[in-house]
Design a protein around this nucleic acid. Structure first.
Length: 859
DNA sequence: ATCTATGGCAAGCCGA
DNA sequence: TCGGCTTGCCAT
């Protein structure tokens, strides 16, 4: 794709001045990856940022037409409002009046973003007749925030930037990938195949190495444990560290009275002292400018924000400050800022990309979990540390931050790049925003490419309505998945079958989307295509955009990236990249169903979400029926999986074949267990693999908040059960378990374990005052904490122990061993163990020989 | 300018 | 004392 760069000029890299257009022509020729597109409020122009990997720098191109965007004019819109022609815009055709589109409101939204290169907007104000306005709009819809869309620019992909045009770099899809994908996808529609190949091109393209540095600062504070307000920036920056992945590390220290200045040779960094904070900051800014990417942990809200305001306060000239602030983020004038705090905080990333390896979102927790290194523990408040301690601490933070982007072959940078390509968002945006925004951006882009209008949320709602089924859980909008009542007991040789990416597959196969649910056609083919268990029907004429996009992504993951990520033939490096892509697709696909049921999603469409779940129920129910008719013992199932007791190969094959033929869905063998112990509770089981590995699902003994003491006892229990080979082995196992129970009880009674091991760890999700209906125990503990001078914020983990007397809990920090309520812990212990034991058919009392625990121990 | 969904369990709170 | 409700954590 060729795009004109006529109107763009390149911002020079040195001093913030802009070179004149034309004179920069030789500098214009380079190749680089598109990393960010946006609007610069100060300069009042749009920009494109490229990362040039040959020179390791960002090159920014500003729009120089001078009359760019923001020509929102109310009168013009009011006029358009009354114009019927707008409502008959051809772009509406595809919606088939399914969505009676109030084009006007879209104009209002989009006008703010129109590139005003037509005569209608002179000096930023549209003029001319309504007719002209509409015409111009039809002919030339330009979305600003979206030069991406305008110019069909794809973030994360390489371009060759020439004299005054930019050209997508030549890249051919590897033949094997192309062939495999073409051979394996079922769909034969041209649109489907083309789109799949398009994605493939996007995802196969190599990811560059990014030159980058992590930044961390420390600020003086006269109150210990209080974080200084970055908007006030009233205290001096006493230390800053910048650690690059080019091997350079720098520490900037502020000289202060009462601290003895000396060399700090033990640090693996270049150390510089400054007696003037202004000079220090200026150096830091210079260094920042040397790196195309700056990585922080919470830089949006703290480090960069503080530096900006501190610079303001110290009257450092604006041109030397490379930072630009917006409400919730901080960016760099000539670089890209990535705030890992926001990235790792993203629930989807946490769960699907890092399988919940970290639970709290602090630098320490994330780093310990992912790279097995933590923050340096300091005994004194920051402001009292020696230069050596301060420098070490600050440097370590920056090093950790950098390592979070370098570990596992730059995994995080690759993940961000791939997500940027899927979502058509810049690297910075994709790392800050949530999955609903990625999917929104992806779908919007697809609409624009096809010249379809983007429907308004309330139009979808009023035309497609709300849901028709009743949720099981009070307060939910519609009925969700089925969980099969487990057959309590121990089952040997269990196969677990599941539908790979069930919901995305359903969206694909059933053609779900806001256009196609309850489509307006009178066609009996459509009307008769009912969603099982609902009065809803699905269009047979047109393919829904959502179905198309989600379907193609699903196919690529299932048919190409997932298998390739495990292919031992591939070199390590290649395989890892496939793993990253596979994971990125997982993140997007897993969220793709949920967003349609989320009010905040701009294409919110309850019947789409409802249909997906309803079809899921239908699919699993039919599969269970089929399995039973084949004589297989179905012992459990949840949403998209069924657990089969001792099935024959042939039966499994038949079932999978049936699913492919009858349901059009791929049913696969997910796991095979040596045995599974099912309790009577749903979503609670324990499965032992042939090699002795154990899956523990839902059992209390594994939950985050329970005391270490219980977790350890529980894991001993699991250890014993993992050795059980056959039914006969249980007897011995139970004897061993008795031993554990006895030991734990005695330890508890004698209060032998450290008190920390008895602490529950529960997250407080609101402020203390936010709890009005009830006051749960962790909140009571939090109140006590606050009373003794600690600060408690939402998201903090409250550690408390159960004690005798009122209110029954105390924060660990404040409790003493003697007041521990041993009885309560015994109850917990019993119930934790019971969950496993009742699956084995023994209860605690029986285990102890028919007596109550207390009696058994003479307690 | 943020924010995928529903189902299920254990424990504790609190009003009837 | 009982039962519904709130909360947090987990499964999918």
């Amino acid at each position: 794709m060729n795009c004109s760069l006529d109107s763009f000029i390149e911002g020079s890299s040195g001093n913030g001045e802009v070179q004149a257009s034309g004179s920069a022509s030789e500098a214009k020729s380079f190749s680089g990856y598109l990393v960010e597109v946006g609007y610069d409020g100060e300069r009042k122009s749009a920009f494109i940022k490229f990362y040039d990997p040959n020179h390791n720098r960002i090159r920014v191109w500003y729009d120089n037409t001078g009359h760019l965007p923001y020509c929102y004019v109310k009168e013009g819109l009011d006029a358009v409002k009354s114009n019927e022609a707008v409502a008959k815009h051809p772009g509406l055709e595809r919606l088939e009046s399914a969505v009676k589109y109030d084009a006007l409101r879209d104009v209002k939204v989009e006008l703010t973003k129109i590139v005003a290169k037509d005569p209608l907007s002179i000096g930023g104000k549209p003029s001319g007749s309504i007719r002209d306005l509409v015409k111009a709009w039809e002919a030339d819809i330009k979305y600003v925030e979206n030069y991406i869309y305008d110019l069909s620019l794809k973030p994360g992909l390489p371009y060759v930037v020439k004299e005054d045009s930019i050209v997508e770099s030549e890249f051919e899809i590897p033949e094997e990938a192309k062939q495999t994908v073409q051979d394996t996808i079922r769909e034969r529609e041209k649109e489907y195949v083309d789109l799949t190949l398009n994605w493939l091109k996007l995802l196969e393209c190599p990811v560059p190495w990014y030159l980058r540095a992590a930044l961390d600062i420390e600020v003086y504070s006269d109150v210990a444990n209080r974080v200084p307000d970055p908007r006030e920036a009233e205290y001096p920056v006493i230390c800053a560290s910048i650690v690059g992945n080019d091997g350079r590390s720098h520490i900037y220290l502020l000289e202060r009275e009462g601290f003895e200045k000396k060399d700090l040779p033990s640090l693996n960094a270049e150390v510089q002292f400054y007696d003037d904070e202004k000079a220090l900051l200026t150096e830091v800014f210079k260094r920042i400018e040397e790196y195309p990417f700056i990585i922080t942990f919470n830089g949006d809200d703290f480090d960069l924000r503080y530096l900006y305001h501190r610079a303001e306060r110290l009257q450092i000239p604006r041109e030397t400050v490379p930072i630009e602030l917006s409400k919730d983020s901080a960016s760099l004038r000539r670089g890209v800022h990535i705030d890992l705090y926001k990235f790792f905080f993203n629930k989807s990333i946490q769960v699907y990309a890092f399988s919940q390896k970290y639970r709290e979102n602090t630098l320490d927790e994330v780093a310990v979990s992912l790279i097995e290194e933590g923050k340096i523990e300091i005994q004194n408040p920051i402001s009292q540390l020696t230069y050596q301690e301060l420098a070490e601490y600050c440097l370590n933070d920056a090093e950790l931050t950098l390592k979070l982007t370098t570990f596992n072959d730059d995994l995080v940078m690759k993940l961000i790049t791939i997500l940027a390509r899927i979502s058509y968002m810049g690297l910075g945006d994709v790392s800050r925003q949530g999955v609903s925004n990625w999917i929104k951006s992806m779908l919007y882009k697809a609409h624009r490419e096809r010249n379809m209008l983007i429907p308004r949320s309330d139009d979808i709602l009023s035309l497609k309505g709300i849901t028709t089924t009743q949720a099981i859980i009070k307060g939910k909008k519609y009925k969700g998945a089925i969980v099969v009542e487990p057959v309590q007991g121990v089952h040997f040789k269990v196969s677990v079958l599941d539908f790979a990416s069930l919901y995305p597959s359903i969206i694909k196969v059933w053609n779900l989307g806001y256009e196609t649910v309850i489509c307006p056609h009178e066609d009996p083919a459509c009307r008769g295509n009912l969603v099982p268990g609902t009065p809803l029907w699905i269009c047979k004429r047109n393919r829904a955009l959502e179905s198309l996009l989600i379907g193609t992504l699903r196919d690529l993951r299932v048919k190409w990236y997932k298998p390739k990520s495990k292919d031992p033939q591939l070199p390590e490096e290649k395989r890892k990249l496939y793993q990253v892509v596979q994971n990125a697709l997982k993140v997007v696909l897993n969220a793709s169903y949920g967003v349609f049921g989320a009010e905040t999603f701009p294409l919110y469409c309850p019947p789409v979400a409802e249909s997906t779940a309803a079809i899921g129920r239908y699919v699993i129910t039919k599969t269970i029926e089929k399995a039973r008719s084949l004589g297989v013992n179905v012992i459990y199932g949840d949403t998209d999986s069924i657990f089969l007791g001792n099935p024959e190969r042939a039966q499994l094959e038949k079932l999978m074949e049936w699913s492919r033929e009858e349901l059009g869905l791929e049913l696969e063998i997910d796991k095979e267990y040596r045995y599974v112990a099912l309790s009577s509770r749903k979503k609670n089981y324990l499965g032992v693999y042939p090699d002795g590995n154990v899956d523990v699902k839902g059992l209390t003994g594994k939950k985050r908040h329970i005391p270490v003491f219980l977790k350890e006892a529980f894991s001993q229990l699991i250890g014993i059960l993992s050795q059980v080979q056959s039914r006969e082995d249980f007897e011995m196992a139970i004897e061993k378990i008795k031993g554990i129970v006895r030991k734990c009880y005695l330890d508890l009674k004698a209060r032998r374990m450290p008190m920390e091991d008895l602490a529950f760890h529960v997250m407080i999700s609101k402020t203390i005052e936010g709890y009005v209906k009830t006051t749960p125990q962790h909140v009571k503990a939090a109140q006590l904490l606050e009373g003794s001078g600690y600060e408690v914020k939402p998201g903090d983990i409250i550690s408390f122990v159960k004690v005798l007397g009122d209110p029954g809990v105390k924060p660990v920090q404040l409790a003493v061993k003697e007041e521990i309520d041993v009885g309560k812990y015994l109850e917990y212990f019993t119930s934790t163990f019971e969950q496993v034991l009742d699956a084995l058919g023994v209860d605690m009392e029986e285990l102890m020989g028919g007596t109550k625990l207390e009696a058994f121990f003479g307690g």
